[in-house]
Amino acid sequence: MRKFFPVEDLARDERFNQATNEERMADPRGTSNTGVIRKARSTNRLTPLRPDATDAARSLMHGIMVGEIQALEGAGRTCFDFVTGEEAPFALKLDMARQCWDEARHVEISVKLSEWMGTELGQFIENTVLFAAACSQDPVLRLAGVNRALEGLAIDVFTTMKEFGELAGDPYLAFCEDWMLADEVTHVKMGSVWLRKITENDPERRKKALEFQSVVDKIFSYGGLRSESDESPILLARRFRELAGFSDGELTEIADVSLAALNERREAVEKTLASSPA
């Protein structure tokens, strides 16, 4: 088996269809308030009050499920791709193996929740951006991009879904999301701890890792999916992120980037419509 497994080769059964993030970004459509929908709701935040709440929650849950599969695959690759001791510390690999088990459970949980919500495996397209961030040749970059940026997003998503379940009175959703949230905080912490430890005497490497993290944060905020604005479906979960080792400055930066991304998406839709011939 090769070291460093390319994202295009991720193995899936016949039910799944995958798209790269570039392909997904080429879709300029928004889910923002327009026309009739504007009248029906004043916020995009994913709450049961939204008229499309059920389908939006189902689609998000499917996104979570495939994200968990990729998180599992990414952590697994970090166990294999680097020589123990020389390229990655033994203890870091143990953490990644632990993460494999957690992510495998998260897939199991998400599959069951998807069934409960009436979603079939592979019903929606799978964006492979999470695994793409796990393909870096530097384990520290993987930890920054996956554990800190993407698992940070997972904290925001699970917090939103947990609230959704509580408001709807769904006995399974809130229960499961709370458990997954506990694991994800641990994973983000792993990222924070290892980033600090490994780059303690290597400021250049740390800078590169943090840059990579903010690039990944930006990619995931594309379209304003997650921010502190009511227009974003997913709320930036500040408190849980603090627990996971993010500083105040970092949180403000993520919030700013996310809001900028929301505005970019708005402009993209307008531009596409204006530039096409009538």
Binding site: D27, R29, G30, T34, G35, D52, V269
Partner: peptide, 8 residues
């Protein structure tokens, strides 16, 4: 309305 990716 092709600008909105919703199912309404």
């Amino acid at each position: 309305d092709e600008t909105v990716a919703m199912s309404r």
